[in-house]
Structure formats: structure tokens, C-alpha cells
Design a protein around this nucleic acid. Structure first.
Length: 843
DNA sequence: AGCACGCCGACT
DNA sequence: GTCGGCGTGCTC
């Protein structure tokens, strides 16, 4: 007699436990770990993922699985163990990790849909205002789409809770409720119309079958040319109705076949053919990587290659070898929509075996991409952070490009770091990892010095292009000294012209040196990138009478003025306010806008150089999938002269015609209370400088700052990573910061300020007591820089665990788990506790 | 995360 | 006396 089998199932809720369901006998053979199961959970029906099959049930009343949703395992054994590690290390519920690894909308869940009752008009008497608002909304929505609405859709639109009200309206026969399943994204099939007659005999066929319809004749005609045509091409492009197709099908003159259609985003960006010849250092790096690949053992590399040194070529050559060994590869990039050039080069080299994953894919595109990974079509996946969970089999290599980039850290649950987790996934696959960067993180560079990673270096730019010349401009000094001493060549009349304009607009944030340099490059028809790492027009509004800076009512940051919308906008919560010009505290009208954002820089540049084509690139203008690639292509083709943007223009772009990069304000972020502030400044300045001078014309860079005495500017100017590293690593060591320790942050968050504060103190004391060996270093809890976001008050606590006392980090991990358990069991739900392991953002 | 249950104040 | 607020606890 066989004992009944049970399945432990992970659900997409922030709960640590798995739930056990019995496996009905007809599903015995199909229920396996890694497959999705449809189950009823509480009142709802939801999709879960089977984690393991067991013989024992932990509770008496066990429900049974309704159905198994996958024929093949959707999550491999290897991915399950990877998810387990992520869940364990980053202290995130396993279900959340598992579900973040599969496309969201392929899952089924039951939903209640509401619609107006047939006789609702008769029951409308004596309604309160709130009810009328809902009924109006539903009426409008039903007219528009005729689809039924879920409660959460309605609540979202009206921004109120509706539980009770909806119940009442149902009792009164005004609304009807209907329960059904959400419809998951499905595979897409297209109909292929295939010729089923001899094309040479078309004339006689038309007569024999008595075909008089012009549309049918046209269709037959088209099929004499092509044997097969997609139905949508016929109906849309050739205006042949489906009825005509059906009539010919009945007459057996055509066949209709269904074919799986894979949705894919089109590649807009393209570039000229480059003759690529590897230099000696590149070959050396590739040889070392190939040696490691040959051993089929886990091996991490740090590829330190200056900007323009040809890191991508090294990745490509290494991956060619991976494919030769019949293995697969993942290539992580910081933000995928920002690297069309890298994708282009991979697609050109590897064709259809390259798949792309990122958050902006539609549900359909995502589903099709995952299917093609599972069926082995895609052997290389290029993508942002989440691509690390791609269900590739037999992974031979993981590349983390621009490994220093902070966007590898996910800032919501599960708060994993893609770069670090990549190391682990490679480890369990006996694969090679390449961390590549021109400005490696202190952590990674340190690891390459201690031998934890093998160090590879590309010290020169490909094809002997020299690094740009970098000038640091101190804005505080500039006005006084510069103009007086400048001698003007009467023939360089354009300079005079600019001076006039400069004096007229009295721009405070653009130095004359930079403006002149821009003018010179424009004359030569060369391209310019201007970095201003702040959106909007003015950064803040300050009252000259009382000193008040207009801030968001829900967050503790200043509001940014956006001229295009004529609004003050909060960059945290998106709240907007109309610009009144009157101080909200004292009523004074002496409100002075200060600080320039990208919008302002763009406008001033257009004023000074009205003939130049200027484009702004920031999250305000880059709203759609295609527009980013479009702008980059236009810039590449020199249809744009000057590109003004936030740090999204500093990453991985390769434009041969850019010979000038200007950093409008290098101090943004430099003074943040974060031990990585200097490191980030060095990285962003070096990265953006690297966009200049990528062809045989030498590039120039102007960096404007008010703090030219900071050592980081010297190191940027001299392209001296090593000097920067050596001075920064000393500070880290002295203060016991990473890489000498791990840092985790615990944050409490609540509408109730006192509650958040008292709970962070409680956690502090709780840890103090647990850590009786005094292995951890706790910084006193307090409010972070952004002490309020969306009306929620925040408090945080930094925990340092030194590598000496706790080499594996297990000690801190276990204490953090205790904190989580303690807070889940003892804290009211009004206060949220966030545990951020290896925190990147300390603000 | 939802959802139900249950305990308190403000209304007929 | 009830209606409706949200705080707490459970879901295999």
C-alpha cells in the first residue's frame, strides 16, 4: 500500500513557510518539484510552485492540488537551489524569490469581477455620494471596454477602500459579483495560409470552382507567388476578409495551419561594421578565461579594462568558447535599455541564440523569451539583474558588465545584489564568472588583489586611441580670473558672439571655458555630451525672506521645478504641486529658484547655440521603449549635436564622434552621508569621461565643481584608478567599511513616527543582547537622509560585521534572521521592518 | 498579501 | 441599540 504523497508549495506571498497539499492519485505522475500547481488558498485560487514532494503532512486538514499547470518543470532543480540560497542569504521569503524568477502574468489566480446589475437603475434611490462615484466610474469603464472590474482596479482608480460599500451595493442589487480566473498570458499562434493547388493551373481552377469574388481571386493570385502567407498579412496588408479565406478553405484550395509565433522587440539601433582586431592584452585575457573554461570548475575573474579598451570583445570571444563546449551563458548589464550597442554586437555575432530579458518587455514577450530559453533556442541571455534567474541549463559562464554599478542591487524584496548572486550561481554550476569594469568597485578590486578573483587587465584603449584630456573647473574661482586674461583673436568672431550671450543670460552653472569648448566642437561638427545628474528645471525653490525650501508634503525632499509641466514635482513619490511663486510658510513672494537640472541646461544651451541640435535624455523624456534607441541612433548618425542628460548617458555608450564631455555639476552626490559617495563620484566621472574621444580625434572633458580640492578630482583627471583605490581603501580599512566588513541596514517604516523610532531602538537593544560576544559593530539608530517617504517615517540602523570576526557572514545572517522572526512575531503591522543585507544605498 | 473576525467609538 | 473603524491572526 502506498502512503499518500504531499507537495510543499511556495506561494507568492511574503510568508516564510511552505504550504502542504495532498496530491490526488491522477496527478501522482505529473506533480514534481519546479512545476506550478493550481491550489485553493483561503478563499482564493492561486498558482503555487511545488518545492518538494513529501510523505508527511504537517497539519491535519490538507487540501488537494487542483491541477498541475506545467508539463515540463518550469524551474530547474539548479534554479530552486539558487533561489533557496538567495532566500537564505538575503533573508527573503522563498516564495517571493521563486516568483520573482518567473514571468508574473503567466500565473492564474481567482478574481472577483464586479459589474452593474441589470436592474441597477431601479435600485438607485437613497445613495450616498461615495456610492454614486463608484457607480459612475463603473458605468464609464463598462462603456469604454465593456469588461468587468476587479475590486483592486476600482480601489486603485478611486484611491479608497471599498470592501464594505461593494458588499452593500450587491445587497441592494446594484452591483453583481462574478468569480472567475484571471487570464494569464498565453502563447501566441498565427494562422498560415498554404496553397493547395497547382499554381500553373490557376485560370482553370478559378473557372472550375466558379470563383467570382475579386477578393478570393486576389488571394489565389497571391498564393501562386508565395506558397505560404500569414493570415494577418492577407487581412491587414491585402484587405482580404477572413470570409474569403474560409470559402477557399471549404473548397479545399488552401490549407490553414497554426504556427507558434514568438514575440520579440525589434532592434532599432545599428552601427557601422567595425573591423575588430584583438590586441595582445585582450588575447591574453581570453586565453586565461579559456583555460579556466577548459577545467569546468568555478572560477571568478575581475576584468579591469579602461573605458574603450574592448571588454565586450573579450566577453564575446569567451562566450564563443562556451558555446563550443555546448554550454550556455548569462550576460548581466546594469540597465538593459541603456545598452543597445552591446545587444547589437551580441546579436550580430550570435544571431538567434541571443535572448534579451528586461523589465520593459511585455508579458507576451517575456513568456516567449522564457519558452525559448527552456527549449534551448536561446543559449545566451543578455539582461538586467533579473536575467540572472534565466532558466538556462548547463551554464558555463556568467558575465557581469560594469560590475560596480549600484543598479545591480534590487531595492525591494528580494533585495539581492545581482553581481554577488551571479558569483553564487556560477559556483553551483562550476562556471566561470567575469566581472568587468573600468572602475571596479572597491570590493571587487580588493578581491582581485587578495587572489579571491583572478585579475585581468586591459590597460590600453583599443586601436591606440588616447584617453581624453580632463580639465577640472572650479566654478567658485572661474568668473574672477578667466575673462580678463583671455585674449580674443578677432577672427574667432563666434567667441565674441558667445560672450555677449553669456553676459546677457548670466548663467551661473556653465563656465565660459565649457561654453567656448562647446562652440569649438560645434564649429568642427563634432558631438558633445553634457552630464547633469539631476532632472527638472530648477532643483529647489528657496524663500529669501524666511529661508524656507519648498518640500514635498509626503517626503522629506525638496520639490523640483519642471518647466515643461509648469509644476513642482517630488522625485520620490511623484506628487505635483502648482507653482504659485509664493512661499508656503511666510507668504513672501521673494521665492528664488535655485540649482539647474537637465531641463534648464538644455534650455540655456539652446539659447547660446540656437543653431545646434540639442536633445535631452532623462527619465522625463525617455518615456517609451523605442525613444531611447531612436535618440541614440540619431546621435550616432550625427542628427543630434549635443546630448544633455542624467547619468543614463554615462553608461556604456560608444559614439565615435563625441569629442567633448561636460559635467555641469560634479558635486551632486559627493557630499551624501554615505561611505560610497566618493567612490560613486569617481565612477560616474570616469565613466562619462570615457565617452569622449573614441575615434582618432582626441577627446576633451570639462568637469565643473565647487570642491576642486577633493582628491577624487585629481585621480579622475589623471585617469589614475590605482591611486584612487589606494587612498580610498585606506579609509575603508580605518573605518572598517567594506571590503573589510559587510554592512547590513535594518529600516523601520511607519505612518507613526514614534512607533518607527521606538521599534528601531527595540531592534537595536535586541541585537545588542543577542550579540553577547560583541562580534558585530552597531551604529546608533537614527533617521536616514530621506527621513520621510510617502508619509512614512523612516529610521535605520547600520550593522557592520568585520570579515575577520565573521568571515562567512553566517553570524550576522543568523542574527538578522532572529531580528526578522522577532519583528514578525512581536511588532504591529503598522510598522514595516526592512532588512537589507549588504546594503548599497544608505540614504 | 488578502480576508475574516472581533473589539471599540459615533450615530439613529 | 447598530454601523463602521481598523488591529490581529490565519491561510496547507
Amino acid at each position: 500500500l502506498e502512503s499518500p504523497k504531499y507537495a510543499n508549495i511556495a506561494l507568492n506571498f511574503p510568508i516564510d513557510t511552505l504550504f502542504t497539499y495532498s496530491i490526488p492519485s491522477h496527478l501522482k505522475n505529473s506533480a514534481e518539484p519546479g512545476k506550478r500547481a493550481l491550489i485553493s488558498f483561503g478563499k482564493k485560487t492561486v498558482t503555487g510552485v511545488i518545492m518538494q514532494i513529501t510523505d508527511i503532512a504537517p497539519v491535519k486538514n490538507v487540501k488537494s492540488i487542483k491541477s498541475i499547470l506545467d508539463e515540463e518543470r518550469i524551474i530547474t532543480e539548479e534554479l530552486i537551489s539558487f533561489c533557496r540560497w538567495v532566500s537564505d542569504y538575503y533573508i527573503a521569503p522563498i516564495g517571493v524569490v521563486i516568483f520573482s524568477s518567473i514571468p508574473r502574468n503567466i500565473n492564474i489566480r481567482s478574481e472577483v469581477y464586479y459589474s452593474l446589475h441589470e436592474l441597477y437603475k431601479e435600485n438607485l434611490n437613497a445613495l450616498n455620494e461615495k456610492a454614486e462615484v463608484i457607480i459612475d466610474l463603473i458605468r464609464i469603464l463598462e462603456k469604454k471596454s465593456s469588461s468587468h472590474q476587479t475590486k483592486s482596479q476600482l480601489e486603485h482608480k478611486l484611491n479608497v477602500k471599498l470592501d464594505v460599500l461593494i458588499k452593500k451595493l450587491i445587497e441592494k442589487n446594484i452591483l453583481t459579483a462574478e468569480s472567475s480566473y484571471s487570464k494569464p498570458t498565453k502563447e501566441k499562434y498565427i494562422k498560415i495560409i498554404k496553397r493547395n493547388f497547382n499554381p500553373d493551373e490557376i485560370e482553370s481552377i478559378i473557372i472550375e470552382n466558379k470563383i467570382r469574388s475579386e477578393k478570393q481571386k486576389k488571394l489565389l493570385q497571391l498564393l501562386t507567388i508565395d506558397k505560404e502567407i500569414g493570415q494577418s498579412i492577407l487581412t491587414v496588408e491585402n484587405k482580404i476578409p477572413v470570409s474569403a479565406i474560409n470559402s477557399l478553405f471549404i473548397k479545399r484550395l488552401i490549407e490553414i495551419n497554426e504556427k507558434r509565433f514568438h514575440r520579440e522587440i525589434p532592434q532599432l539601433f545599428y552601427e557601422d561594421d567595425k573591423k575588430i582586431k584583438l590586441n595582445e592584452k585582450q588575447n591574453e585575457a581570453i586565453t586565461k578565461i579559456n583555460d579556466a573554461l577548459g577545467k569546468d570548475l568555478f572560477k571568478p575573474f575581475l576584468l579591469y579594462g579602461i573605458t574603450g579598451s574592448g571588454k565586450t570583445e573579450v566577453y564575446i570571444c569567451a562566450i564563443e568558447n562556451v558555446l563550443r563546449k555546448n554550454k550556455t551563458a548569462i550576460v548581466l548589464v546594469p540597465e538593459i535599455s541603456l545598452t543597445p550597442q552591446l545587444i547589437f554586437r551580441f546579436k550580430k555575432r550570435f544571431g538567434n541564440s541571443v535572448g534579451v530579458i528586461h523589465s520593459k518587455l511585455s508579458d507576451g514577450e517575456k513568456l516567449d523569451t522564457y519558452d525559448r530559453i527552456r527549449n534551448g533556442t536561446y543559449k545566451i541571455i543578455v539582461g538586467a539583474r533579473s536575467a540572472l534567474f534565466a532558466p538556462l541549463k548547463n551554464i558555463g559562464m556568467i558575465v557581469v558588465d560594469e560590475e560596480h554599478d549600484s543598479s545591480y542591487k534590487q531595492e525591494n524584496m528580494p533585495r539581492y545584489n545581482g553581481r554577488d548572486a551571479a558569483i553564487y550561481r556560477a559556483y553551483i554550476n562550476n562556471a566561470v564568472v567575469i566581472l568587468g569594469s573600468a572602475t571596479p568597485s572597491l570590493e571587487s578590486f580588493y578581491n582581485s588583489q587578495t587572489g579571491k578573483y583572478e585579475f585581468l587587465e586591459l590597460p590600453e584603449r583599443a586601436s591606440n586611441i588616447t584617453l581624453p584630456e580632463i580639465k577640472i573647473i572650479d566654478l567658485l574661482k572661474r568668473d574672477k580670473d578667466y575673462v580678463k586674461n583671455l585674449e580674443l583673436d578677432p577672427e574667432e568672431s563666434f567667441k565674441r558672439d558667445y560672450f555677449d550671450k553669456i553676459d546677457k543670460v548670466r548663467i551661473k552653472f556653465l563656465s565660459k571655458e565649457l561654453i567656448i569648448a562647446i562652440g569649438e566642437k560645434l564649429e568642427k561638427k563634432e558631438n558633445i555630451i553634457l552630464l547633469q545628474n539631476r532632472r527638472g528645471y530648477h532643483s529647489y525653490l528657496e524663500c529669501m525672506d524666511c529661508g524656507n525650501v519648498e518640500t514635498c508634503s509626503r517626503c522629506s525632499i525638496s520639490l523640483t521645478y519642471h518647466k515643461a509641466f509648469q509644476l513642482l514635482k517630488c522625485h520620490f513619490c511623484g506628487l505635483t504641486r502648482k507653482l504659485t511663486g509664493i512661499c508656503s510658510v511666510c507668504g513672501s513672494s521673494k521665492v528664488i529658484p535655485k540649482g539647474a537640472g537637465t531641463e534648464r541646461v538644455e534650455e540655456e544651451i539652446e539659447k547660446i547655440f540656437p543653431f545646434a541640435k540639442v536633445k535631452r535624455m532623462d527619465s522625463d523624456t525617455m518615456t517609451s521603449k523605442g525613444i531611447y534607441q531612436e535618440v541614440l541612433r540619431d546621435f550616432y548618425e550625427k542628427k543630434i549635436d549635443i546630448l544633455v542628460g542624467t547619468q543614463m548617458i554615462s553608461k556604456g555608450l560608444d559614439f565615435p564622434h563625441v569629442t567633448l564631455v561636460g559635467v555641469v555639476n560634479a558635486d551632486i552626490g559627493l557630499l551624501n552621508p554615505d561611505f560610497r559617495a566618493t567612490e560613486r563620484t569617481f565612477q560616474i566621472l570616469t565613466q562619462v569621461s570615457g565617452r569622449s574621444g573614441r575615434s582618432n580625434i582626441k577627446g576633451e572633458v570639462f568637469i565643473q565643481t565647487n570642491h576642486s580640492d577633493y582628491f577624487v578630482f585629481d585621480d579622475v583627471k589623471n585617469h589614475d584608478y590605482m591611486k584612487f583605490y589606494n587612498s580610498e581603501i585606506k579609509t575603508r580599512k580605518a573605518l572598517n567599511y567594506p571590503p573589510f566588513s559587510r554592512i547590513s541596514v535594518i529600516e523601520t517604516k511607519s505612518l507613526d513616527r514614534n512607533l518607527a523610532e521606538s521599534k528601531i531602538k527595540e531592534i537595536y537593544n535586541f541585537i545588542k543582547e543577542l550579540d553577547n560576544e560583541n562580534k558585530l559593530e552597531l551604529l546608533p539608530p537614527g533617521p536616514p537622509l530621506f527621513s520621510k517617504i510617502r508619509d512614512r517615517f523612516r529610521f535605520h540602523l547600520l550593522i557592520k560585521s568585520s570579515r575577520q570576526k565573521d568571515p562567512s557572514g553566517k553570524y550576522m545572517n543568523s542574527i538578522l534572521k532572529d531580528v526578522r522572526l522577532y519583528s514578525v512575531n512581536n511588532f504591529p503591522s503598522k510598522v514595516q521592518v526592512i532588512i537589507d543585507v549588504d546594503a548599497v544605498s544608505l540614504l
